[in-house]
């Protein structure tokens, strides 16, 4: 039985048995290249739930501060963000029924759109390892590997780390390659080149905050950008304000980010904002041997003091 059928089966069951008040999962989007988050309360609605290579967003985004009992569909990265939410007291473990989905990566719709050269995609058929993209008068077969999202290509935790149910056998974790070679490439540049890299990266930013809204970690009742007394950062697209926003939002995610890629996915300007948080993720691993959300027993790295923490930078 495929993942989609198993998800529908579990969702229907836990709603019928009233183990949860609602189930949060994905349904087919309004566009063939997108799946849409959906919240269902009636067991009959379980038929809506789907699972394909376009389930890119992080559903843990919908959990903070909720009071209901919630069934939630979670791939590896999502489950880690659920763990982060539990550790940060945004949701209680007892409230959740986690439907874990071992994930081999989601596909980047932008790569598909680039290959289509303006032709409209009307349908996608998925087979094992490949996708057939169809439209008026054309059909193109693409391997999943060639169009995987960048963060999925570098993923170090494909299987859920916490779950109440698993809808498929665990998949193999990536075995080789350095997941942080993209960060190292930037580290090796000089300071002026690095500044130029980041300035160019956010040149198109319109300050829509889609990245912040899609991010499961961004749940502050008043985000620092919305604060007006004092106004920490201006609201316009002034390059200094925009850089401040991205640097500071990334730092607020330091040691908590799972590289789920929702920020990049949600950005209407296709900006790879992950280049900010990935440096912090690399440093958290190197300095504190810490990766976000692997356990609900561990405190976050910036929450914890150990006497052997690196302190050479303190005069």
């Amino acid at each position: 039985m495929g993942r989609a059928e198993r998800i529908r089966e579990v969702a229907k069951q836990i709603l019928e048995e009233k183990k949860v008040d609602l189930v949060i999962g994905f349904k087919k989007g309004t566009h063939p290249l997108m799946a849409e988050p959906v919240s269902i309360k009636d067991p009959k609605e379980a038929e809506l739930l789907c699972w394909d290579s376009f389930c890119t967003l992080n559903l843990a985004n919908y959990l903070p501060k909720r009071k209901e009992k919630i069934g939630i569909v979670a791939k590896g990265c999502d489950s880690r963000n659920i763990a982060v939410h539990i550790v940060e007291n945004q949701i209680k473990r007892e409230q959740l029924y986690i439907i874990g989905v071992p994930c081999e990566g989601m596909v980047d719709k932008r790569r598909i759109l680039a290959l289509l050269h303006g032709r409209e995609c009307m349908e996608v058929v998925e087979n094992d390892g490949s996708l057939i993209v169809k439209g008026e008068g054309f059909e193109q077969t693409l391997t999943r590997e060639s169009i995987l999202r960048d963060n999925c290509r570098r993923c170090m935790h494909r299987n859920p780390v916490i779950q109440d149910d698993l809808v498929a056998w665990p998949v193999m974790e990536r075995a080789e390659g350095d997941p942080f070679d993209d960060v190292k490439e930037i580290e090796e540049l000089g300071p002026e080149a690095r500044w130029k890299f980041f300035t160019d990266l956010i040149r198109d930013c319109t300050r829509c905050y889609a990245c912040r809204n899609a991010c499961p970690l961004c749940y502050c009742p008043t985000c620092f950008v919305d604060e007006s007394e004092p106004q920490w950062v201006g609201k316009s697209i002034d390059p200094t304000d925009t850089m401040t926003f991205h640097l500071l939002r990334a730092f607020h995610c330091a040691g908590r980010c799972t590289d789920c890629g929702s920020c990049q996915q949600a950005c209407p300007m296709d900006i790879n904002v992950r280049m900010f948080t990935r440096k912090l993720n690399k440093d958290a691993l190197e300095l504190y041997a810490s990766e976000a959300g692997l356990s609900i027993e561990k405190r976050p790295p910036l929450d914890t003091y150990r006497p052997d923490d690196e302190g050479k930078f303190i005069k």
Binding site: I186, E187, P191, E192, A193, R194, W195, K196, F197, F198, M243, L247, A250, F251, A254, G255, F276, K279, L280, D283, A284, L287, L302, F313, I314, K315
Partner: peptide, 21 residues
């Protein structure tokens, strides 16, 4: 982590310094 991060972004490291006093 903040020091490494800002330096990574291209900001001169001398501008951010830490001390326990």
């Amino acid at each position: 982590m903040l020091k490494r991060f800002l330096e990574h972004a291209g900001i001169e490291p001398e501008r951010l310094q830490f001390s326990w006093i």
